[in-house]
Computed example of a mutant assay.
Amino acid sequence: MNYGKSEWGPVLDYVKMLHGKSQFQPQGVLPYPWEDIGPGYCYGPAFGHWDAVHIALDLLEDDPAQARYQIDNLISLQQEDGMIPSIIWMREDAPADWAPDQTHPPVWVSAADLIYGKNRDKAWLKTCADALERQVSWFEHSRRAMDGGFYYTDIKNHLWESGVDEGIRFMEVPEGEKSCVDACSHVYLMYDRLLAWQQELYGIRDRTLEEKRDGLGQYIRNVLYDRETGFFYDSWSVDCPKYRHLCLEGFWPVIVGAADPEQAGYIIERHMMNEQEFLSQHPVPTVSLQDSLYEKRMWRGPAWNSMTMWAARGCMRYGRYEEAGRLLEAALDGTSRIYSQTGCIWEFYDSLGGRPEQVQRKPQTGFNMPCRDYLGHNPLHYMAGLWEECRHAKR
Rank of each mutant, 00 (worst) to 15 (best):
S76D: 10
M273D: 11
S162L: 07
M90L: 14
Y233L: 06
C128L: 09
K21L: 13
P379N: 07
Q290F: 03
P31I: 04
G353E: 08
G203N: 10
P285W: 05
G354Y: 09
W346V: 06
I155Y: 01
G376C: 08
W299P: 01
Y43M: 14
A129M: 03
A331Y: 02
P64Y: 03
G163T: 09
L209C: 09
C371P: 00
D51E: 15
K21Y: 07
Y191R: 04
Q358R: 10
D113R: 14
W50H: 13
W252M: 13
L125A: 10
E61Q: 14
E166A: 14
G82K: 14
N305P: 11
N274C: 08
T208A: 15
E329C: 08
E329M: 10
D101Q: 12
Y243S: 09
Y374D: 07
D373L: 04
Y43D: 13
T308Y: 07
H381Q: 14
T208I: 09
D63L: 01
Y3V: 11
Q341I: 06
S280G: 08
H377T: 13
D130V: 12
Y233D: 08
R395P: 04
R326P: 00
V187M: 04
I87T: 15
G314W: 04
T153P: 00
Y339T: 10
W299C: 06
P370W: 05
V187A: 00
S137W: 12
E161Q: 09
M171Q: 13
H271R: 08
H392G: 00
P64N: 06
V256Y: 06
S280I: 02
L246A: 14
W197A: 02
R68Q: 15
P253Y: 07
P10T: 10
Q198D: 13
S306T: 11
L18M: 12
C315S: 12
D72K: 13
D226S: 11
T286D: 07
D226V: 03
C315D: 08
A56G: 01
L332E: 12
D260P: 03
D72W: 02
L209H: 11
G149S: 10
M316G: 07
R361H: 15
V284G: 02
Q199E: 15
Y151M: 09
M83E: 10
W8F: 12
D62N: 08
D13P: 00
A112G: 06
D192F: 00
H104R: 08
P302Y: 06
Y266T: 15
Q341W: 10
C128Y: 01
W34A: 00
V256Q: 09
